[in-house]
Design a protein around this nucleic acid. Structure first.
Length: 587
RNA sequence: GACCCCGUAGCUCAGUAGGAUAGAGCAUCAGAUUCCUAAUCUGAGGGCCGCAGGUUCGAAUCCUGCCGGGGUCGCCA
């Protein structure tokens, strides 16, 4: 149980004794840290509901609470706020209890679920660009948060490998190397193992094809035709397509790795393709499919809707498969292969309507309960002009270039500050990459995911204030001071005793981890964990500035402070891991 | 046109079960290092919470209207 859950239960009991709803006992961190550590505003609402005097009711609650030795102070303020401050002994005892284990107070979900997490969504033959950044970063963090909280998570990259771009690639390659065996419809032998293209070829062919199809209707028809043949299983195209996917995946996987993003499954739209006919037949037999202007749709609106939900299109008027059909069939595939309790999609907020349609259709079709399908949307990363981020030339910035850019900046900052002096080149480069990526990821994660944010390299790379590097720096300082202490024979960390205000504040923050994790998990909001990480780094920095640790003369105080430092370091490390941020050993 | 999101300090943003004096970071100004990494710490100034009504003992938060910005609305994914 987290500290707020525990205190809420304690105060809730008292409300219950007074024959009031125990929900009124909800305790939260105090808005006024100058007055107390925790507060409960329930007496106000309870008094209103029970037609009682709020101050009198609060006083009654307080009297019971005051008998508890865990509380140093329980008082009433204003119209009936109950302010609570823990006794230092109790604070130390609670902290002692959470720092013994590996979880450091990390909350565990009471109802673990098997979650299939759909994030990433890269496309074959298209290099990753900044548009892929948020889903990767947010998805990876959510995966780690869920897992640590006790859920079973399967992360699926859900590769875009089955649409029109595949046909475009095929036809484009045909124009360049039409004599390849893959294009010979009469060929019946085995196709070569070696791919006919390199990554650089794909990266050239795709934009070429895409532009050509836009400009020339005939080319577009040709690509559509090839797509249809591929999807029908033309052997040469399938063989070629497999090469495209393999070549592309290798590159994509490497880039995700540099970002610290790792998937359990590398499935794609193509994996759902074989199920589409079967699914469509089932939907049809249930009378859910309708013809609309030649297209096949499923109506998902219901009477209670306060907004219009258009039907989900499954098949286009030319018979082509839409991503609505693919997404539905993917659910079927996931049920059969993974059988999750819940499927969560980490995809741009702009696709909210599409998911609403798909979820409703899945529910109607009996594929999956709509309330166990979740779209975790996020806002766009904008440039300083407030519009989706573009390079100065107006193009999309590749992820690779982005990572190089932040690494370079970090390197420059290291040199400027005279940090990492005397480290060899390899370590300096490694530190720079970690610092740069941490800055990037923390900047992204620390925004509430549903809002847009402005990408400002100068701000992210400033490294002062609420940034990734600030967290890394705090962690490095913990390590450093503990190493110094050990070298000086300062003894082992011991029992926590509160002797200074900085220690009390730090202990309180450390105890807040459980609630931060619980909220981040339940609301699927990693930024709440970022807030906690920053609070922790800040509290540690104040403690570090205000209290001697390694060379504190009093042995018991020294042992206590080392325990506080150690706990801070380990909790920070754990949180960085949950955020998917890699930390250097020193910097 | 319909629907959704947003509008809070000079800048970027928190504040999502209505509660005390609306917070943080940056920037600005003033300080701190004989001492564990100063990418740090301490302090100060800075606000008609878009506007106007309403509900309430109490509203940045809930309701209505208006203004401004962004997004979505069947044959791209």
């Amino acid at each position: 149980m987290t500290i707020l859950e525990e205190l809420s239960r304690r105060v809730g009991d008292v409300f219950a004794e007074a024959e009031l709803d125990r929900q009124y006992g909800r305790v939260k961190l105090a808005d006024r840290p100058d007055l107390a550590q925790f507060q409960c505003n329930g007496a106000l609402a309870a008094a209103k509901a029970a037609r009682q005097n709020p101050r009198a009711l609060a006083e009654k609650i307080c009297q019971t609470l005051r008998s508890d030795a865990a509380f140093k102070d329980v008082s009433i303020a204003g119209p009936g706020f109950i302010n609570i401050t823990l006794a230092d002994d109790d604070l130390a005892r609670r902290l002692g209890a959470i720092i013994e284990g590996d979880r450091l107070g990390g909350w565990k979900t009471p109802e673990p679920e098997k979650i299939l997490l759909d994030y990433g969504g890269p496309n074959v033959a298209k290099p990753l660009h900044v548009g892929h950044l948020r889903t990767a970063i947010i998805g990876e963090s959510l995966k780690r948060i869920f897992r640590f909280a006790g859920d079973v998570v399967v992360g699926d990259v859900h590769l875009g490998d089955w649409g029109l771009p595949m046909g475009q690639l095929i036809t484009e390659l045909k124009r360049e190397q039409g004599d390849l065996v893959y294009f010979d419809a009469a060929f019946e032998g085995a196709y070569p193992d070696q791919p006919p293209v390199l990554l650089m070829d794909l990266e050239r062919l795709y934009p070429q094809a895409s532009a050509a199809c836009k400009a020339d209707r005939a080319r577009a028809d040709e690509a559509r035709q090839a797509t249809a043949e591929l999807q029908k299983g033309r052997p040469g195209y399938i063989a070629l397509w497999k090469h495209f996917v393999a070549v592309s995946r290798q590159a994509i996987e490497k880039e995700y790795e540099d970002l610290g993003v790792i998937f359990d499954l590398w499935k794609g739209e193509a994996d759902a393709a074989p199920l589409i006919q079967e699914m469509a037949a089932d939907l049809a037999s249930k009378g859910l499919i309708e013809d609309s202007d030649g297209a096949q749709v499923i109506r998902v609106a219901s009477d209670g809707d306060n907004k219009k939900i258009p039907p989900l299109m499954l098949f286009k008027s030319d018979g082509g498969v839409t991503y609505g059909a693919t997404d539905l069939a993917t659910i079927l595939d996931r049920v059969r292969t993974e059988n999750p309790d819940r499927i969560i999609y980490v995809v741009d907020q702009r696709q909210a309507l599409h998911f609403e349609q798909v979820f409703r259709a899945a529910g109607l079709a009996g594929l999956f309960a709509a309330n166990r399908l979740e779209h975790i949307g996020f806002g766009t990363m904008n440039g300083k002009d407030g519009k989706p981020f573009k390079t100065r030339e107006g193009g999309v910035l590749r992820l690779r270039e982005m990572i190089d850019m932040v690494t370079e900046r970090a390197q420059a900052r290291l040199a400027e500050n005279g940090l990492a002096e005397g480290y060899d080149d390899a370590e300096t480069t490694d530190i720079a990459r970690k610092v740069g990526v941490a800055a990037l990821k923390f900047a992204d994660l620390s925004n509430p995911r549903s809002s847009d944010y402005i990408f400002d390299l100068d701000r992210f790379m400033a490294f002062e204030g609420k940034t990734g590097p600030y967290l890394l720096y705090a962690r490095v300082r913990v390590r450093s001071v503990l190493a110094k202490a050990e070298a000086a024979g300062a003894g082992a960390p011991g029992e926590v005793k509160i002797t200074a205000p900085e220690e009390r504040d730090l202990a309180l923050v450390l105890l807040g981890f459980g609630d931060a994790l619980r909220q981040a998990h339940n609301k699927r909001l990693p930024h709440l964990l970022c807030d906690h990480a920053f609070l922790l780094a800040q509290a540690f920095s104040k403690f570090y500035a205000g209290c001697r640790i390694a060379d504190e003369a009093d042995q018991a105080v020294r042992a206590s402070r080392m325990a506080l430092a150690d706990a801070s370091g380990r909790q920070l490390e754990l949180i960085l891991d949950l955020l998917g941020i890699q930390a250097p050993e020193r910097m």
